[in-house]
Design a protein around this nucleic acid. Sequence first.
DNA 1: CTGAAAGCGCTAACAT
DNA 2: ATGTTAGCGCTTTCAG
Lengths: 326, 326
Amino acid sequence: MSVSRVVNGTRKVGPEVERKVRTAIERIGYEPNEAARILKGHRARVVGVIVPDLADPFFATCVNAIQEALREADYMSWMAASGHKEDIERQDVQIMVKRKVAGLLVIPSGFQNDHFLAARRSGIPIVSFDRPLENFDADRLVVDNRAASSRATQHLIDHGHQHILCVRGSDDDKSFTRIERITGYSQTMRRAKHSARFCYMPGSLSASPSNQLEFALKSHPAPTAIFATDNTVAVRVLRELQKHSVKIPDKMALIAFDDFDAADLMRPTITVVRQPTVDIGRQAASMLLARIRGDVSSNPKEVVLPTELVIRESCGCGKHRSKIIS
Amino acid sequence: MSVSRVVNGTRKVGPEVERKVRTAIERIGYEPNEAARILKGHRARVVGVIVPDLADPFFATCVNAIQEALREADYMSWMAASGHKEDIERQDVQIMVKRKVAGLLVIPSGFQNDHFLAARRSGIPIVSFDRPLENFDADRLVVDNRAASSRATQHLIDHGHQHILCVRGSDDDKSFTRIERITGYSQTMRRAKHSARFCYMPGSLSASPSNQLEFALKSHPAPTAIFATDNTVAVRVLRELQKHSVKIPDKMALIAFDDFDAADLMRPTITVVRQPTVDIGRQAASMLLARIRGDVSSNPKEVVLPTELVIRESCGCGKHRSKIIS
DNA sequence: CTGAAAGCGCTAACAT
DNA sequence: ATGTTAGCGCTTTCAG
């Protein structure tokens, strides 16, 4: 029918016919059938969003921002959590591609990216954020994890600490961000001629923390400061320190990557590296939208967003020096 | 072709033909086309999940559990956040229905439910959780908010408090759970012959809290205890109390609905009503799956899950009496 | 047991 | 400027 032409405005239609069709549509309550449209080769107005874990506050906030941004452009978001598993991620990508999403917004769970190749082969634009998709020419949005960690470490060094322990999660090193942060820490320690020391925080948030940290605390020379590589680690470190009644910052200074809800509620308040969570989401969304709208040609962009070192008390700066360094 | 018969096992096929088809499928890398299948009237193996806010830790945890449960049954989850807005929720439902999701898992943002009627008319099963879909015969999963709040309030009363302030969020009372919790509080206060007093915590988490709470603190008789209706409220109350250096629990006792990450990290630790977040998600998912698998006939179920009162320090119970009352 | 063919609702090319 | 038609990839009925 020429109904299609009216609905999609594909071609010139007589004003009288147009009116007639419109009223008919109203009356019948007609709605175009997505499936048929897709079958005909069209893309759906849906964007796939894949993150490792929706229960992680950092990811959740990003995702929320993404959803808002996409909605403004009249796109639905199709969220999925990969559970940090590459094969689940692969499965998700496949299904989303099969269902003809208009684009893909991804925090890759690992370094394998062959499943994304399939997506690109079918012409679906991809933007990775937080962690970049490596060796893959797609847009990416990151923060400078290395520089931020370096600054945080340096701040502890400036406080006179020499034995700074880096407490990190242990997802088998599939996390680009974590590696970068560890590198930033290591480089800065080396530059200051201090030795880098590490300690794993295995398992999920709810799992009991290993006693690796406990051992580390009792080792000689005992660490006097801790750099935690992300918010989930930070929370578990805090729990452990409290269990052993280790006074912060006197006995142990602390800086964590990622701001978190409780960071300024605790006593002492926790010094953190803050990422522009909402901006990350919004900008990633708009980069993808630009691609969807046909800017296929131009070269892949890499956008790097700034972080802040939010200085509170746990680093040893004292009660009233709360400030932010960008 | 008879390929369809092999793939779906719809009808008897000669073993030789079957083998031939299978190898052909392997060789070509054939994948059935979703769109065409849906066009033919089939449902997608995708379940729509709509919650008010993906950045809220309570919702995020539920959603994560849901996703895991659905994946085990080989269903994808299509998450969407309604931003507490009924019209966004309506829009989401419409699109999901149009795209032929196999079922809908919803925390309704309000009390209007006409858009869900449309879904049911097209035979899509619906399960609401956390907040029930009212006047709507669909399965629902809730916790007994009223009883739990009552117990929390009673606990404060048992500590000798008479002036207990209920601090609540203010989404225009579109939240069933909040109303129930307030009711539980009110009833218990009335039963104890104490007067109920309320105070709003408007705006989002990041917005500056109004000074309603500030006023309430200075009123006479001054409240000596606070019951916070949810985790977002609790965090803002804590922030405010710390700003005014109000000692917990001496000057002000506190119990909050919803456990949160920092609740046992803060000093004092916070007494809370804990909901079985993960179970809520998992059970809601399995109720929906049961419906999807064809149990259309049986009457709508209402499942009520138990809560726990997790007694820590902020209620005034002292350092070492941390325990859980189910 | 298997092949052929109709048709789901839409769009784009073609014809008027 | 508008009406007609083929066909997207699948399922399902109908013959064989």
